[in-house]
């Protein structure tokens, strides 16, 4: 077994994951945000590992 095989498995796994995801929740290009967040005038809204508490405190009453 070579690193080529494990690398191929990683790539295949990734494509399967994205493929299933596209099938279940297809992206909608008509809902895409402006090209760049900086200067867009919109609040940052992406998920981020450091912002768990901030995010919940604004979405779950009482937290």
């Amino acid at each position: 077994m070579t690193r080529g095989l494990t690398s191929t498995i990683a790539l295949a796994g990734l494509f399967i994951l994205v493929g299933i995801d596209i099938w279940v929740t297809p992206p909608n290009p008509y809902q895409s945000p402006p090209l760049v967040a900086f200067g867009s005038g919109f609040s940052a809204s992406g998920g981020f590992c450091g912002n768990l508490l901030n995010e919940i405190s604004t979405t779950v009453p009482g937290q």
Binding site: V18, D21, T25, P27, S45, G47, E55
Partner: peptide
């Protein structure tokens, strides 16, 4: 939480 549910219902191709 609503923000998490929103992302679970969106494509991973829209998650940074």
């Amino acid at each position: 939480a609503s923000s998490s549910v929103g992302r679970l219902n969106s494509s991973v191709l829209t998650d940074y």
